[in-house]
């Protein structure tokens, strides 16, 4: 494992911790999209099925379990926690997730490495992760005001993906025959989804202002 990959994973982990701390400390999930969080849960469940049949490293296993547990913890807070669930913007978070799930699944059936259940589900999770942030970005666009923690959460999620891109470039030059077209293309799409957000985030940071999205 190279430093870019590790930095990417740590940024991903940190983004989740920031979101959980925000929810716990403020007892509020205002501005957070439950749809996006549920999509991430689907992504992790379908991707980490290999926990049952392959072992890569202790690091790998532990991280997978942490991602799964934290995803379900966040969903639990937003759906079941007495105080937190009342702060959820249900009326604003109306993205039709089937418009993401169905095309990703069809694409996974058509473009994959191997026509097996686990491999198709793994490929589906790669495609779905690329677009899973969209309900969150749409919610942000609707509610306009972006609180600091939600902004940092999304910024870190985007940074994690950008670091993975650097990791793939590094691996391409250091590992003989390393090629991952499905992962590379999806990862590039996923990073591009954040570009607009990055622009406004950096602008707010440079001007020392609270982040606002244009109407």
């Amino acid at each position: 494992m190279n430093i870019f990959r590790l930095a990417g994973d740590m940024t991903h982990l940190l983004s989740i911790i920031v979101l959980l701390l925000k929810i716990q400390a403020t007892k509020s999930c205002a501005g957070v999209s439950l749809k996006t969080q549920e999509l991430y849960a689907v992504v992790f469940v379908t991707r980490y099925l290999d926990l049952f049949y392959s072992f890569i490293s202790l690091y790998n296993t532990v991280m997978k379990i942490i991602f799964l547990l934290t995803a379900f913890t966040i969903i639990w807070y937003m759906r079941k926690h007495k105080v937190v669930c009342q702060t959820y913007d249900k009326e604003q978070d109306t993205f039709r997730v089937l418009f993401l799930i169905v095309p990703c699944f069809v694409l996974a059936l058509l473009v994959n490495h191997e026509m097996s259940v686990t491999e198709v589900l793994w490929t589906f999770s790669i495609y779905l992760e690329a677009v899973a942030i969209l309900p969150q970005l749409v919610l942000l666009q609707r509610t306009k005001n972006v609180d600091n923690l939600t902004g940092n959460y999304i910024f870190m999620l985007g940074s994690y993906r950008a670091l993975y891109l650097v990791n793939w470039v590094y691996r391409y030059f250091t590992e003989l025959g390393y090629r991952q077209w499905i992962v590379w293309v999806s990862g590039t799409v996923q990073t591009c989804v954040y570009l607009d957000f990055f622009y406004y985030y950096v602008q707010a940071w440079r001007n020392n202002e609270r982040m606002k999205l244009p109407g």
Binding site: R5, D9, H12, D50, S54, I56, N60, M63, K64, F67, H113, E114, E119, W122, Y164, N167, Y178, R179, Q180, I182, V183
Partner: peptide, 10 residues
């Protein structure tokens, strides 16, 4: 071969 290599990432 390619498939298993991809699974070492998270």
């Amino acid at each position: 071969e390619e498939a298993s290599a991809a699974h070492d990432e998270l």
